[in-house]
Structures are given as C-alpha cells and as structure tokens.
C-alpha cells in the first residue's frame, strides 16, 4: 500500500504541491517583511516578536505577495458569498470570459478542421498555405488583439464577438496543424488496403482518415482551448468595460489590489483546467465509443 503510494503519481504530486505552498508562505514573509516592519514602525510598535511579524506578513491588506489562504478567502468571498449577478462576483466575470472563450473556440476549431481537410485534399493549398500556418506559430499573433478590438468597434461590432475572434484565431492554428497531422497519419499500407477495396476518396476519408485523426484532434483541441482562454483574457485587457478575468486583472493592477489579481488568476487557471479536463473526458468517451481498448 505504502509502496504503491510512493511509486504512484498522487503522493508525489501532493508532496511537491505542499513544498510549493510552503515556499509560497516563506516568499510572502520575505516579500512583505519590509512593509510589515514599516507598518510596525509607523504604529510605534518596537517590541514585536518574530511571530507577530510573520502573522502580519500573511494578513496585509495589499501585500506584495498574498498568502494562499488570503487568496482562498478572497475567492470564497467573490465566488460563493457574492451574488453571481453582481459585478463584484468572480462567477459573473467567469461567465463573461467563458462565453467568449467557448464561442471563439468553437469558431476557431471548426475553421481549423475545415482548413485541415482542404489542405489534405488540395495539393496547392498544402504546399502554399501550410508553411505559413506553421510559420505563424513562431510570431506573437496575440499582438494583434488590441487592434482587432478597435477595428471591430469601427464596424459597431461589440460584445462577445470581437473577443471571440481573437480567441478563435489563437485556437485555430494548433487545431489546423494537429488535424493535418492526424488526417495524414494512416500509413501507406492502410491507404493501399482502402484502394484494394476500391474505396472512393470520400469513403477513405470517412472510414480511415477521420478515425485515424481523432487522437491528434483531441490533443490539439486541448492546446486550442487553453490558447482560446489566453486570447480572451488578453482581449479583455483592451475591452475591459464588459468585465471578465482580464478586466479584473487590469482593475486590480490599477488600484494595487494584489489579492484581487491573484484571485482572478486562480479562477482563470481553474477555468483553463476545467476546460482542458472536459476535452480530456470527451476524448476518452469518443475513443471508447470508437472501440479502443
């Protein structure tokens, strides 16, 4: 039992997480220490103990590095205790971000799949377009985000759509690249077999290429949905009036509300994790339905 725990994954992950959280508390003491000493000095409190100092650094109002429990408390306050309709609720901001993320992800991955299918079947597209798709991975396309928002504004396109478009183009590239790889993954033997069955191109596509591409597709969908969330958050920095995690980050940075920034960051991380796991579950369900062992 102990040995299984030791050589498994759960215990090591727990131990490492515990170490990281411990380091975090130590970091909070180091980073917030100066401010706490100043605070004691201002209050003319000269005979404070080390324990006072430590507890002080973990409970400041605007610490340089908030302690994890402060972040959790803020999360509880803004997620559970605040009504989800309030602008102070992280649930409200979360739904704003998630809506744009999901819409963008749907558009982006649908476009990515269509483009991949075209690339696999049209040779001139493959040779001319694919190098650009691959090369575009090396440039920081996210730099376009503020411009896209402003241009959309010119056309009176507001609300969800501009943010979704940024999310879409960030998720589009990984999906295209992965799907092309997947559609090409059947080996020549399998393609030859289809030919001996005198299968048409369409039959080969649906019965061989599509099933073969599923693992690649899901792997790239996971990357795509994470990229989509990043795109939405960055878009919300420019378009902060509608709320969302990005707007929360920006507001927190304006007013020096570090705890608020960290809480938004944690909530965004939780959303990203949930989205990726959801696709992981879908992956498992589809693979199972396809009869994989």
């Amino acid at each position: 039992m102990l040995k299984a725990l030791w050589s498994g994954k759960t215990l090591p992950v727990l131990v490492v997480s515990a170490i990281l959280i411990g380091l975090w508390y130590v970091g909070a003491i180091l980073l917030n220490g100066d401010m706490q000493r100043d605070a004691f000095a201002n209050a003319n409190n000269t005979n404070y103990t080390f324990t006072d100092l430590v507890i002080g650094t973990w409970s400041q109002e605007r610490p340089k590095l908030p302690a994890p429990d402060q972040i959790l408390a803020e999360l509880q306050k803004t997620v559970i205790d605040t009504a989800p309709t309030s602008k102070r609720s992280l649930v409200y901001h979360g739904t704003v971000t998630l809506a744009a993320t999901l819409l963008g992800f749907l558009i982006g991955s649908a476009l990515g799949m269509v483009l991949a299918i075209l690339v696999v079947h049209v040779r001139s597209l493959d040779k001319s377009l694919m190098p650009w798709v691959v090369a575009s991975q090396t440039i920081p396309i996210i730099a376009l985000a503020p411009m896209i928002i402003v241009i959309m504004n010119q056309f009176d396109i507001t609300g969800l759509v501009p943010k979704s478009i940024i999310a879409a183009y960030l998720s589009f590239f990984p999906v295209t690249v992965g799907m092309v790889k997947g559609l090409r993954s059947p080996d020549p033997l399998q393609l030859d077999l289809m030919r001996t069955y005198s299968a048409s191109r369409i039959q080969t596509f649906f019965k061989l290429r599509i099933p073969a591409s599923v693992p690649f597709l899901f792997a790239s969908l996971k990357v795509g949905v994470a990229a989509s969330l990043v795109g939405t958050v960055v878009a919300e920095l420019t378009k902060s009036e509608d709320g969302g995690f990005g707007a929360r980050l920006l507001a927190g940075s304006y007013y020096g509300q570090t705890i608020q920034i960290w809480a938004a960051l944690f909530a965004a991380a939780a959303c990203a994790w949930a989205l990726v796991s959801l696709i992981g579950l879908l992956d498992r369900a589809v693979t199972k339905a396809m009869g994989a062992r």
């Binding site: 994954k9 340089k64 994470a226 990043v230 994790w273």
Partner: peptide, 29 residues
Amino acid sequence: PFLQRGLLPLGNLVSALPIVGVAPIMVMW
C-alpha cells in the same frame, strides 16, 4: 524520480494555464 513524478503533472497543468496573467503582478514587483 519521486520529485519528477510530482513535478511533471504540475508542469503539464501549468502549461495549459493563462500564465500571461501574472504580468500585472510582475510589473508591481
């Protein structure tokens, strides 16, 4: 290997997170 098994899943998790969000914190620091 114990640390490896602990760090790798965390590393994979982190790569899916919107880490650019730490930007405002780093600007403050």
